[in-house]
């Protein structure tokens, strides 16, 4: 069901926890599975410098969230919500059965984080 790459990342996920100094975050709940994903971003000059995650989810959720945080590092903020199945498959190989819905949830979470970033930015500029 899970390949060795998935298992290894699940055992020792990277990028776990609250990202200190983050300037964006998104949280989503999948109503069908009740899996919760929260992603924190640190954005500088329009690029993601660092990201971390927390999740209430299964093996796929933990492995894919950890991988997503790796994939988006260094990417333009406006492009991160477009990461797709192929991006994950390139890193992990064959993906688990439920990966489609987890990746969709990750993209939705990133989209909310991006919106949160621009909201914070606008608020900051208004305060100046």
């Amino acid at each position: 069901m899970y390949n060795e790459n998935i298992i290894q990342i699940f055992k020792n996920p990277n990028n776990v926890g609250v990202l200190q100094g983050h300037n964006a975050q998104g949280t989503t709940t999948n109503e069908a599975t009740n899996e919760i994903i929260r992603i924190y971003l640190l954005v500088e000059n329009g690029k993601v410098v660092e990201s971390k995650f927390k999740t209430f989810g299964g093996v796929s959720c933990i492995a894919l969230c950890s991988t997503a945080c790796e994939i988006i590092k260094g990417m333009d903020l406006d492009k991160i919500e477009n990461i797709d199945v192929l991006d994950f498959a390139r890193v992990l190989g064959q993906l688990p059965e439920d990966s489609g819905q987890v990746i969709a949830q990750i993209r939705q979470t990133l989209s909310i984080a991006v919106a949160d970033y621009y909201k914070r930015l606008a608020k900051e500029q208004n305060n100046k």
């Binding site: 055992k11 899996e35 209430f56 989810g57 299964g58 093996v59 959720c61």
Partner: peptide, 14 residues
């Protein structure tokens, strides 16, 4: 509480 059962099961399995 706060823990996903599948993740717990898999960690135990490992």
């Amino acid at each position: 509480g706060m823990v996903d059962g599948e993740s717990l099961m898999m960690m135990l399995d490992l």
